[in-house]
Design a protein around this nucleic acid. Structure first.
Lengths: 187, 187
DNA sequence: CGCCCTCCGTACGCCGAGGTATGGACCTGC
DNA sequence: GCAGGTCCATACCTCGGCGTACGGAGGGCG
C-alpha cells in the first residue's frame, strides 16, 4: 500500500524504519523497501540521509530515547507506590500491547545496535533495583532480583514473539503469572 | 580461514550452518559465505542440497533434536535429585558455555523456525514443570514457575548475547543469582 | 517573469546472494 | 585400463539491495 505523497521529511523515514526495526530486526531497515512502502523512491531518501547506516543510527537513537523513558514513565504514572512498581512493570509487559522491540536483539552483531540495547537494559534494571531497594531489600538482593525480573521480562517477550503457544492464553492466566512473580520477588 | 579440503558430505554443511544459525541467526545461513568458510564452492553445495531452504530445514531439525535432548540429558546426568534439577538447569545456562541459540529467535518470521522454537520451548518447560511438581508444588504453581524459570533462562541468554555488561562478571555473582532463583522458585 | 532552493523521480553501475549447466577430477570395480 | 558414479570448480544468469548522477517539478521571492 504505497501511501499517498505529501512531501516527506527525515522523520517520516525514521518512523517507518522504527516500525520495521522493532518488528523485523535491523536487517529489515532497507532503503528500497521502505521507499516502496512510503510510495516514494531512493531519490528522496538520499536527500534526507547520507546512507542506510545513517538511517539506522537515527532510528536507533530515536528508539533509545523513547524506550528508555517510555516504559519507565508509563509505570511511574500508573502507581506511586514504590512497592507496586515492579508488579506494574511486569503487568505492562504481559499485557502484550507493547510492540516487539525484540527483533532488535537480532542485530547484536552490529555494534551500534548492541550498544543501544545495553544502555537501555542498564537503565531499566537500575530503575527496577531502585524500586526493590525502596521495598526493603538489601542492595545486593535488589540487584539480583531486578536482573531476574528483567530477564523474565525479556524471555517473556521472546516467547510472545516466537512461541506464543506456550504462554497462558487467557488474561487471567497472565495475571496469575504476574502476581506470582511479584510475590516471589518482593520481600 | 578456508579450512583444508578433504571431501565434504551433507553433515559438514549442516555443522557449519548450525554454528552460524546459533551465532548470527537464520539470515546468516547463506550458501556462498559458508562455502568460502569451508574452502569450497557452490558446486559442492548444490550437489548435497537442493536449495538454501533445504539446508536451513536440515539445520533446524538437527538443532531441534539436539536442543531437545541435549540440555535435558545434561541436567539429568548431573543430579538424580529431582529437587535439585531446576537449580542444575539454571546453572547450566549461567555457566555460559552453551552457545548462543539465541539469534535463532531472530528468525521468528520464518514459519519453520518459529515452529521448531516453539516445540523445543514446550519440551523444556514441560520438563521443568515436571521437576517442580516432584518437588511438591501444585501442578498450576509448577507450570507458572517453570514458565518463569524458562523466561529468565531466555532473557539471560538474550542479555549475554546483546548486553553482557549488565550481567554479573564473576562466577560468584552468577552463582549467587542461580541460588537466589532456586530459593525463590522451590517450595 | 525569472531565479533559486527544496525535494524527488529515473537511470545507471556495482556487488553479493540464489540457482543452473557443464566439464572435469578422483575413486571404485570389473 | 576403462567405465561409471561421486564429488566439486567454473562460468553464467537473475534479482534485489546500496549508492551516485542528473534532471525536472514546484513553490517563494525579487
Amino acid at each position: 500500500m504505497p501511501t499517498a505523497n505529501p512531501r516527506l521529511n527525515r522523520d517520516s523515514w525514521i518512523d517507518a524504519a522504527l516500525a520495521l526495526l522493532l518488528q523485523s530486526g535491523p536487517d529489515a531497515v532497507a532503503v528500497q523497501p521502505i521507499a516502496r512502502q512510503l510510495g516514494t523512491t531512493k531519490g528522496s531518501f538520499y536527500w534526507h540521509f547520507s546512507s542506510r547506516d545513517d538511517l539506522l543510527r537515527a532510528t536507533l537513537t530515536r528508539w533509545e530515547t523513547a524506550a528508555g523513558d517510555d516504559l519507565i514513565a508509563s509505570v511511574d504514572a500508573r502507581t506511586a507506590d514504590s512497592g507496586k512498581k515492579a508488579e506494574a512493570l511486569v503487568e505492562e509487559v504481559t499485557a502484550g500491547e507493547r510492540p516487539g522491540e525484540l527483533m532488535l536483539l537480532a542485530g547484536t552483531n552490529h555494534p551500534d545496535v548492541a550498544a543501544a540495547v545495553e544502555r537501555v537494559a542498564r537503565k531499566r534494571i537500575d530503575y527496577l533495583a531502585r524500586q526493590l531497594r525502596n521495598s526493603g531489600l538489601t542492595p545486593a538482593a535488589a540487584q539480583r532480583r531486578a536482573l531476574l525480573v528483567y530477564t523474565a521480562y525479556l524471555g517473556y517477550a521472546v516467547l510472545a514473539a516466537s512461541a506464543p503457544g506456550v504462554l497462558p492464553d487467557s488474561a487471567r492466566g497472565r495475571r496469575a503469572l504476574v502476581s506470582e512473580v511479584a510475590e516471589l520477588v518482593l520481600p
